[in-house]
Design a protein around this nucleic acid. Structure first.
Length: 835
RNA sequence: GCCCACGUGGUGGAAUGGCAGACACACGGGACUUAAAAUCCCGUGGGAGGCAACUCCCGUGUGGGUUCGAAUCCCACCGUGGGCACCA
């Protein structure tokens, strides 16, 4: 009973198999693997005399859930490009590896007691099997994983170089702490949410805590990270996000002396031209000078306010909580321009972490200052008027205009006034031109087990570098993975590892997951090198002249991985390890694939598409083709399981152009393939297809390339004979998309070599230029007729021909033709008026 | 609030100043078959007229503009998605 039901199901599965993908796909995967077809040649090896092409995927974190259709989209696109470029004669580097440190494996270990290494290995094996089943042409001899000591040795090495040059340091600062994950997180790993800030991973609530942590001085590279965005071909939206994140603003630092004290408060402003309108100062409540400046009679109120602010969460401090608060310090500062006494306040709308932690308030020209001044009855002095009005505006005006009531600035437009004021400040020695960035230093330590140990030993309260010869500092084995209560890292429990005989203690924090992914694209170039992270020869060959030629991945890393990696790359450039200022020349983001219901794929919606079932039912070539046929690569698009039928039927049609099935269900090459030249209209459509597919591949417009191949195949299906000279180029054109099927047909046509390095077909320009064209004839811009005539027709001939056509005559009859627009080879437009 | 994308049939999309809807899904009809599946062929934006081949009108979020001609360029608005948000 049971077995007959199984037989029945198998019979159905067998019946719906339109071509034997289940046999040919594993076959060709085995051949590619055994013959090492996709090994890329390093300098000195045969093949390295070709020009190089480096096409890179964002390597995955091997999660327990396996690959999803979104991964497959990006990986299929990059694989198509890799296969295409090989056929165009490039030595293609197309590697894959594993971003294998990270929180999920560690959380799983805490829950189950299974070592993260074991889960990670298991997940990697699963990912690799899925990737191989898709037929991707990776050079597996270059596979890397970030958890490998031979790899993280060099992650630690880079950290040491940063440390030596003062770019890695320990500081106590208010940092984001996540109680659920029991670790600190970087600014870039925090997301806003209606309930307040949450962690990027897991969406747990996070809070500010003052802690001593390792920081990387990414701010030292702010200017170059900003300026060099002009060197790369990235989506404008990603560049813009990085620009906003870096947040450069030009202005002036101005010192305000405090009346009766020997101190002054420095403020940063982008509007030095409004200095004459500065009617009070505001310091951040945490500003170090607050206690010194506060008058005795205000001290109680000020301290109470400071405590109140310290208790507030960041959410409460943000504008969502409504009105502004603050208290006066009772003291006065001197406005260096107007010489006026102006009061000094503290308020939590001024942040200690930006600029100097103090501002000059110009309520007439800043919305926030205006709101505060109105609330506390502080004076408002207008010093800029709009360019189109002679009067200063009644309320706050924050735009650019003309300076007024500002003595030596009067009459100057804002831009000029800023320059004049900065010159004046510099001359008087009370201020100077300054550039500020929103970017903060990168919080680099985590209180977790499953990460790279820091190569640092503490002696007498000082951090010392572990000698490079002792790298890697190995992550010790553990059975217990929970972080200690109170923010101590798990490694601190590993006494025999932490405590050194000479009294030194190892650093017990580990690096964040981003560390390993900051430079992995360099290790692929020379993955087994034990002397250096990459040999200079391999680096110059693969990274020259502009770095990775094409980098495909998700947009979610816009200000995380992509900013961090640029920072490390620029540092490695400065110390001579790499030869290009930017790592990734051309970046393309694949769009998110939504569930069938149009919502984001998620467990809670139950709309996640598992690729394994699709591969069984349709085969890898169909899944690859369909992923590309969904729509433009960069666009967000919904999945459609029904839609798979189209590409599947298309591949089966291609198969049947070459193969035929006998009575026993065996497929054999069709006898009677013509070796003659195909008719002109068939050759013409073939060469149009060659041209279109080639152009579209260069632009990564895969879905339109597929559509064109469908047009060609539909035309061939209608023919009674098939021609070898048409089928061969078609198979080559299709092979980057559906490599297994094409390899099988290629060998069925008698070819003995893999087509992976076969020469890409070239379009014959003579066949593209058609002599006849279909001309469109318009009357007043509306199509009223068409005619087939020579493409080369001149204006007069074309017009005369068109006028003779009855459908056109009818429209012109009795009207006056005022003008005739002529587009050679394409179109005529008669502009007619009433009679 | 500010910045950036995007808006086209029942659906995914094509066309980026010159034939709107290529290609595909879905749907409908037909051929083959004892039957079904598969395959192949035909139709498929809306409306009006005609027995018919066909003809005309409307139509690319909404309103305006530029142009002989606009899905495409410009202005305003509406909607969707993403990013930033007291950064002085």
């Amino acid at each position: 009973m049971l077995s007959s039901a199984t037989c029945h199901v198998e019979a159905i599965m067998e019946a719906r198999r339109a071509y034997p993908f289940d046999r040919i796909e594993p076959k060709w995967q085995r051949i590619w693997r055994e013959r090492r077809v996709f090994r890329a040649a390093n300098p000195g090896e045969p093949g390295a005399q070709k020009p190089k092409y480096y096409v890179l995927d964002m390597f995955p974190y091997p999660s327990g859930r396996g690959l999803h259709v979104g991964h497959l989209e990006g990986y299929t696109a990059s694989d198509i490009v890799a296969r295409y470029k090989r056929m165009r004669g490039f030595n293609v580097l197309h590697p894959m590896g594993w971003d294998a440190f990270g929180l999920p494996a560690e959380q799983h270990a805490i829950a189950t007691g299974i070592h993260p290494r074991i889960t990670t290995e298991r997940n990697i094996a699963n990912f690799r099997a899925q990737i191989e089943a898709m037929g991707f042409s990776y050079d597996w001899s270059r596979e890397i994983k970030t958890t490998d000591p031979g790899y993280y040795r060099w992650t630690q090495w880079i950290f040491l170089q940063l440390f030596r040059r003062g770019l890695a340091y320990v500081a106590e600062a208010p940092v984001w702490y996540c109680p659920a994950l029991q670790t600190v997180l970087a600014n870039e790993e925090i997301l806003p949410s209606p309930e307040g800030p949450v962690s990027e991973r897991g969406h747990h609530p996070v809070e500010r805590r003052p802690l001593r942590q390792w920081m990387l001085r990414i701010t030292a590279y702010a200017e170059r990270l900003l300026a060099d965005l002009d060197l790369v071909e990235w989506p404008e939206s990603i560049k813009e996000m990085q620009r906003n994140w870096i947040g450069r603003s030009e202005g002036a630092a101005i010192r305000f002396p405090i009346e009766g004290k020997d101190v002054s408060v420095e403020v940063f402003t982008t509007r030095p031209d409004t200095l004459f309108g500065a009617t009070y100062l505001v310091l951040a409540p945490e500003h170090p000078l607050v206690s010194e400046i506060t008058r005795p009679e205000c001290r109680t109120a000020v301290e109470a306010y400071q405590q109140e602010v310290a208790k507030k969460s960041d959410l409460e401090r943000s504008e969502l909580s409504g009105g502004k608060t603050g208290v006066s310090l009772g003291s006065f500062a001197i406005n260096p321009a107007s010489r006026e006494r102006i009061p000094v306040w503290i308020a939590d709308y001024v942040l200690m972490s930006y600029g100097t932690g103090a501002i000059m308030a110009v309520p007439a020209h800043d919305e926030r200052d205006y709101e505060f001044a109105t609330l506390f009855g502080l004076p408002v002095r207008s010093v800029v008027r709009p360019a189109d009005s002679s009067d200063p505006p009644a309320r706050c005006f924050s735009g650019e205009g003309i300076a007024c009531s500002s003595r030596f600035l009067d009459g100057l437009p804002t831009r000029e006034a800023k320059k004049a004021m900065i010159a004046w400040l510099e001359e008087k020695g009370v201020g100077k031109r300054t550039v500020q960035y929103r970017l903060r230093d990168w919080l680099f330590s985590r209180q977790r087990y499953w990460g790279e140990p820091f190569p640092i030993i503490w002696r007498n309260g000082k951090a010392e570098a572990v000698p490079e010869t002792e790298l890697p500092v190995l992550l010790p084995e553990r059975k217990e993975f929970s972080p200690e209560k109170g923010g101590f890292a798990p490694l601190s429990q590993e006494k025999s590892w932490v405590e050194l005989p000479d009294g030194g203690r190892r650093e017990t924090n580990t690096m964040p997951q981003w560390a390993g992914s900051c430079w992995y694209y360099l290790r692929y170039l020379d993955p087994a090198n034990g002397q250096a992270l990459v040999s200079p020869v391999a680096e110059r060959y693969w990274m020259g002249p502009q770095g990775v030629d094409l980098y495909i991945g998700g947009a979610e890393h816009a200000v995380l991985h992509l900013l961090y990696a640029r920072f490390w790359h620029k540092f490695l450039y400065d110390i001579g390890v790499v030869s290009t200022p930017e790592p990734f020349h051309r970046l393309v983001n694949q769009g998110i694939i939504l569930g069938e219901d149009g919502r984001k794929m998620s467990k809670s919606f139950g709309n996640i598409v598992n690729p394994d079932g699709l591969l069984r039912e349709y085969g890898a070539d169909t899944v690859r083709l369909f992923e590309m046929f969904l729509g433009p690569l960069e666009q967000m698009k919904p999945w459609s399981s029904q839609g798979l039928e189209g590409p599947h039927r298309f591949l089966a049609r291609v198969w049947r152009l070459v193969m035929e099935e006998d009575a026993e269900g065996r497929w054999t090459p069709r006898p009677g393939l013509s070796t003659e030249e195909a008719p002109l209209e068939v050759r013409r459509i073939l060469h149009q297809t060659i041209r279109k597919v080639t152009d579209d591949l260069e632009q990564l417009s895969f879905h339109t390339a597929i559509a064109q191949m469908m047009i060609l195949v539909n035309a061939l299906t209608r023919q009674l004979v098939q021609w070898r000279c048409v089928l061969e180029p078609l198979i080559l054109l299709l092979s980057p998309f559906a490599p297994h099927l094409c390899e099988e047909l290629w060998s069925a046509l008698g070819q003995t070599d893999s087509l992976a390095y076969a020469r890409w077909p070239e379009a014959d320009p003579r066949l593209l230029a058609e002599e006849e064209a279909e001309w469109v004839i318009q009357i007043n811009g509306k199509v009223r007729g068409r005619m087939t005539a020579a493409r080369s027709l001149g204006r007069e001939e074309a017009e005369a021909l068109a006028r003779r056509r009855p459908e056109i005559e009818a429209w012109i009859e009795g009207k006056s033709v005022q003008k005739v627009v002529f587009v050679p080879g394409k179109l005529l437009n008669f502009v007619v008026g009433p009679s």
